[in-house]
Design a protein around this nucleic acid. Structure first.
Lengths: 207, 207, 207, 207
DNA sequence: CATGAATGAGGTTTCATTCAT
DNA sequence: TATGAATGAAACCTCATTCAT
């Protein structure tokens, strides 16, 4: 009848996972091309090579759920890419650097997904909110900062504000990478690393 | 027959300027309440105390133009408030501090306008694009940084990247102030000033 | 913006009352022609000479509300026609006869409205139910029966069951008049009057 | 390829008869729960424990045919239950009483089927019309009345109108038993028997 | 200036039905 | 037989915009 109950990808047939992924990808394209408000089922179906919008409704309970899945998908990819590189570092300072570099890297390689995610995060309003998403990032960063402060690597700043600053500074980079005519992603990464390194490190004259 | 040609407020009757301002304000409210995609003429008219959406079409050429005016209006207010405080400072460092503090101040006092502006910036797509808006801010910041680097107040970083970082870190604050349960705006301001102060100042051991 | 708030006809412009009546009439036609499930906005708009289904949504909050108005309208007409003839009679027995005769009369002259009403009563399911409608009729009949029993005109039966029997026997006539190839309405009336006269009157051998 | 040609249950495999009965039962449930217009194949399949609506299309030529089968099934059950009790009586008057009592009995024990049947009778429109169903009942009643009139048991009324009255008065009871908060079915039966007994019997003073 | 009415396009979603597996 | 996927039509409804008054 319908295959759209539940919201994770487990317990779904092979073909269905394929279709869902295809639709999610097409949604990203539609949002990037047309903007969230004009990313209609019609546009999405077209980009997914489907001959009917009914197919989308068949695979996703409704539009809100589809958008949620897009967010989850993009965020999942990002988390995996960034996460593995962060845990590979052994100092807090190194982890911060890894977080920034990996994030910029991700933005460079996935700027369309990222742009779509941003639009969804801004526009999606629902009872079932999409987003303990940025939240999760910010939480992780706060943790990182607090750990660094305990070991004395970092100076004594408000971990929350700093996490917000880092997170959204990166968002800024993301938005630029999507639209600007070939900005150099590496220089963004390099400068941001330096910036937040300076902003966080314990003052040397105090050591 | 129609009063909506052109896009600035000059050459308009008193009542018309009033209606336009009223509609712009109502648009802000609608966007904040419902999100950009659901901020329809109907909702806007309702919030403006108008009993017909025809009135909006009469005063604005189309929806895109209305949104453009909202952006211009909010951005104008912000620029005035922030600009006057920035020029009052006499060192580049002081100006950076003033920019950050004034911005946070503006966000605290105008977070609804700000939220609306953000949604418009993200969503608005048009042949006649609204917004070299952030652009203008970023340009001004770059200028400020370059000046500071020339006088030796600032270290040698990429002014563009730093401008983007500052601008979007502030955006992050803005988004938080709109939704978080009573975040302390002052502590955001204080921490961001310190952060970017540390990130930009010439290294003291090198002086 | 929209003229569809509230649900009675007061406080509406002349033109609007006209349009609403026109749409209600077209809804009756559509239901009779196609049946409730296929009486779509498209079909209704067509029959109302409207070039767009949007016009219906403009005048009625939603389909449920439109159906409610149809029911109210038909029932109102019936109540007026039947009511005036019932109160004109002075004995309970005479009132029962008047009720039956006037009802059959109404069915003959308004069998399309009646058919539509029946379909709506059966099919409409909503939180805001249409129908203390038959209920009202049945209540009135119970009252009539009880009065007649008090004066000794009627024998001692259960007024509720008898009311249900009368009301639904009349429904049966209604359904027949709509579909049968020219049944003689008068003979229906005559027979039903006799039937329920005999069924209700106090036994003469007991007097 | 398909098993749905024809419309009676003969010449069908055991499993197929089972599935068809199961689907018919589920259709009754769906109609009672949701109303005819919302009794979709999806809802029916769900209630039948089927995981695909394709199964329904496989077993029934189309939706109209399914509905026809539901009607036939319910009506068949009713006819059997009522019929056996009617023929057991030996006077026309006794048969009328039996018909009413057995009918009310059937409504009490099968009100869901009955409700579904009613909705189908009202809503079903097709080139291949379902239902000389009530018709058949009414025909039988007319026969019964005519027989009683010949033997002098009944007075001289129009058998058709009386049949319609009885038939639809019973429908009214059926509808009430489905929705009212515990109406006493027995009192309905008792009162209706008395009512139509009085309405039909030859006047004793004339004998 | 302002209103209410009208239009027509386009939105999401549900549905009966078909078909490959 | 049974399933899940696909299709395309049609459903209700909202919207920006226009126009007569």
């Amino acid at each position: 009848m319908r295959a759209n109950s539940g919201s994770d990808e487990q317990g779904r047939s092979f073909t269905e996972r394929g279709r869902r992924a295809q639709i999610v990808a097409a949604t990203v394209e539609a949002i990037v091309d047309l903007g969230y408000p004009k990313a209609s089922f019609g546009q999405i179906a077209q980009r997914a090579g489907l001959s009917s919008t009914g197919m989308i409704s068949y695979h996703f309970e409704n539009k809100a759920e589809l958008m949620r899945q897009v967010a989850v998908s993009v965020y999942g990819t990002a988390e995996e890419l960034v996460g593995t590189r962060v845990v590979a570092a052994d100092t807090a300072r190194g982890q911060l650097r890894a977080f920034i570099e990996a994030s910029v890297d991700f933005y460079r390689t996935h700027h369309r997904e990222l742009r779509a995610l941003t639009e969804i995060l801004i526009n999606h309003r629902d009872d079932q909110p999409v987003m303990p998403l940025h939240q999760r990032d910010i939480g992780a960063l706060e943790e990182l900062f607090r750990a660094g402060q305990r070991t004395g690597e970092f100076r004594d700043f408000d971990p929350h504000v700093m996490a917000v600053a880092v997170r959204h500074a990166l968002d800024g980079v993301a938005m630029r990478l999507g639209t600007e005519i070939e900005t150099d992603a590496d220089s963004y990464a390099r400068e941001l690393v330096t910036t937040f390194d300076l902003a966080t490190q314990a003052r040397q004259e105090e050591s």
